[in-house]
Nucleic acid binder design. Structure first.
Length: 651
DNA sequence: GAGTAGAGCGCC
DNA sequence: AAAGGGCGCTCTACTC
């Protein structure tokens, strides 16, 4: 659909409830009968007039099964008609509704159907990063927010709706409300659809193809090896305990370590350590003495207790966030799965983000829901430590294997293209190794010699590691000091400030096209007021280029084209592999920015790796974006049976 | 008790 | 003068 055509769309929306009110937002509870649809409405428009094409309210007098049969009938009609007539199903935050349809038994139809999302279109039109710290609250893009802003006469139409009251009157009201949702969804989706330029629209439509995949992934969830999780939890508890015992005599307790204020007092007043760094609040202007990782790293040279503090805090943090959270979510969900919920267009660069919890809000007065409580449905998947011990917790469902594809050197390659730097471009050709090249430049050795010895010679390995660090860190105007700290603290690479200076200097001399790209990109963005990815997706950059936010705005100009294109590339990849995955009985399960993970039946894994690789290495960039990358864009594959134990697939 | 600010930190 | 970017989660401190 390139222009909005009422004869090619169907609006729909589902309302849900459950054994507890908050279960309404947990579609996997539908499978166990603990959540259900209370109202389903689909509508079409002919000559501008709304036609109610299907709908049902949940009648609590009927047994749950019979209610479901009724609802299923309408859902099935809607889905099959949409497929037969080539209609797109339009909703607001529609991955949720799609997940409900899958839970009601229509996985096959949902995976074939086309979806569109009003929220998604609005974001594509409107997205701009927040530069003012004081205004860091994100703009909401809910349907209610759209109505309040653009249809103020109808603002507040959702008030007094009770999603969980099963009386006939309340259900009738709910159903009428659902119908309004459909009407407003059409107005909103149509409005934003028409506002978008052709390339923006195309990018949005490609992104929208991920909706059923994300719906299915959110619904299915991930199996966890609870034994591994338990062992990890114990190990981290022991690590913490060891440090706690060693530090106890110096006044360290868990409470102190977890509190920056108390820890600062202990270290700087009681122990008399020097204050190496201060934090200044951008809002209040208050300064506090930093106790962060970098400071502890530096202090460890004069007092070994600083290292112990760091280890102690790290063990405590990691245990809560990456071990206990998984176990807790498994227990809470009651389906032996953890359900990190992916949000499409979670960031303005179009990455998916994952949330670990569901906020129980509203309906606080109703039994069973405490307002403000965070329900532990998943974990912060996109932040999971890159460590075998942690990742091994995530396993596969019986009969499946895990297949990972990641876009090889994604940001390096897009930077090569964006900057047009000859050296970078040539290093993206088959057989070259950019990190060895940079390592050779930094270490004053011969590039080919380094490549030849990089597997065997420890010194060459060290140089290549430094080259990789330089390539990845210097791409976006990093400062010498930050570069040094980052090398030392995060990568354990010893580095003094002079060496950091040299690294930055050599980077710019190696790739002279990159600093030129920075300038060009900033100037272009000043002119246009927005930045565009290679796919045509845009983000607005408006503000005072002479003011204090100018640096941030410039960084967005530089950064967005690269990261945003990475996001577009991932969505294109998802769209292309969707049908193939279905055909082998597999499904997309999560993403990690430049990596796509799928569950595939064991006996199909090998073949799926080969076929998927072929699809991904030949993505239809020209057709999708009207742009052909001048260099190869290869994908690497790994497979295995747990996230912590994936083996490279050789082709 | 609820809500927010801030620090710190995990990933790519 | 100096400044990689993008996020979400967890904890404490503080305010009302």
């Amino acid at each position: 659909m390139r222009v909005w055509d009422d004869s090619k769309v169907t609006m729909f929306d589902v309302e849900t409830s459950g054994a507890k009110p908050e279960y309404a937002l947990q579609p996997w509870r539908i499978l166990s009968g603990d959540a259900w649809v209370t109202s389903f409405v689909s509508m079409e428009w002919v000559d501008g007039k709304a036609i109610y094409t299907g709908g049902v309210t949940h009648d609590d007098n009927l047994p749950v099964d019979e209610g479901r049969i009724l609802c299923r009938r309408f859902m099935k009609d809607m889905l099959t008609m949409a497929l037969d007539e080539g209609r797109t199903l339009v909703g607001w935050h529609v991955a949720f509704d799609a997940a409900v349809c899958i839970a009601y038994g229509f996985e096959k139809l949902v995976m074939q159907a086309k979806f569109l999302d009003g929220l998604l279109l609005w974001k594509h039109f409107d997205m701009e990063p927040e530069y003012e710290m004081a205004a860091h609250k994100k703009r909401p893009y809910g349907l209610k927010d759209f109505v309040t802003e653009y249809l103020p006469a109808h603002a507040g139409y959702e008030e007094e709706i009770d999603f969980h009251d099963s009386s006939p009157e309340a259900r009738a009201k709910l159903h009428a409300y659902n119908e309004k949702d459909n009407r407003f969804t059409r107005i909103g989706a149509r409005h934003w659809f028409k506002q978008l330029g052709p390339r923006q629209l195309k990018a949005a439509l490609i992104e929208a193809e991920s909706i059923p995949m994300v719906a299915l992934a959110n619904l299915r969830g991930l199996p966890i090896d609870t034994l591994v999780a338990h062992e990890l939890s114990c190990k981290l508890a022991n690590d913490a305990k060891r440090q706690a015992e060693a530090l106890a005599e110096f006044g360290v307790t868990e409470k102190v370590v977890r509190s920056p204020v108390q820890l600062a007092k202990l270290m700087y007043e009681d122990w008399g350590l020097p204050v190496l760094k201060e934090n200044k609040s951008k809002i209040t202007g208050n300064t506090t003495r930093s106790t962060d990782k970098e400071v502890l790293h530096e202090l460890a040279f004069i007092d070994p207790r600083a290292k112990q503090l760091r280890d102690y805090r790290e063990a405590l943090n990691n245990r809560t966030k990456f071990a206990e959270a998984l176990v807790k979510s498994i227990a809470y969900n009651e389906d032996e799965r953890t359900h990190p919920q992916a949000r499409i267009f979670g960031t303005y660069t179009s990455r998916l983000t994952y949330s670990s919890g569901q906020k129980a809000k509203g309906a606080g007065k109703r039994e069973g829901t405490v307002k403000g409580v965070n329900l532990p449905i998943g974990f912060a998947l996109h932040q999971m430590k890159n460590d075998k011990l942690f990742r091994a917790q995530v396993i596969v469902p019986p009969g499946y294997g895990l297949l990972e594809f990641d876009a090889s050197g994604q940001e390096y390659r897009w930077m090569a293209i964006a900057s047009g730097d000859e050296t970078m471009l040539s290093l993206c050709e088959p057989g070259e190794d950019p990190h060895s090249y940079m390592g050779a430049r930094l270490g004053h050795v011969d590039y080919r010699e380094l490549v030849r010895l990089k597997e065997t010679d420890p010194e060459m390995q060290r140089l290549r590691k430094g080259g990789k660090f330089g390539n990845l860190s210097c791409q976006y105007r990093i400062g010498d000091k930050t570069l040094m700290v980052r090398a030392r603290v995060q990568h354990n690479i010893p580095m003094e400030i002079n060496e950091a200076k040299t690294t930055n200097f050599i980077y710019k001399r190696t790739y002279p096209g990159v600093p030129k790209y920075w300038d060009r990109q900033i100037n272009e963005t000043k002119q246009l007021g927005y930045v565009e990815t290679f796919a045509g997706r845009r983000v607005q950059v408006v503000g005072d280029w002479g003011g204090r936010m100018a640096w941030s705005m410039g960084s967005t100009a530089i950064n967005y084209k690269i990261q945003g294109t990475g996001g577009d590339q991932k969505y294109l990849a998802m769209a292309v592999i969707k049908d193939y995955l279905v055909s082998v009985g597999g499904y997309f399960i999560w993403d990690l920015h430049d990596g796509l993970y799928s569950f595939v039946p064991v006996q199909k894994m090998q073949q799926a790796a080969i076929d998927t690789k072929r699809l991904l290495d030949n993505l239809p960039y020209k057709k999708a974006w009207g742009f052909v990358p001048p260099i190869p864009m290869p994908w690497d594959a790994k497979m295995g049976f747990s996230w912590g134990d994936l083996k490279e697939v050789k082709f």
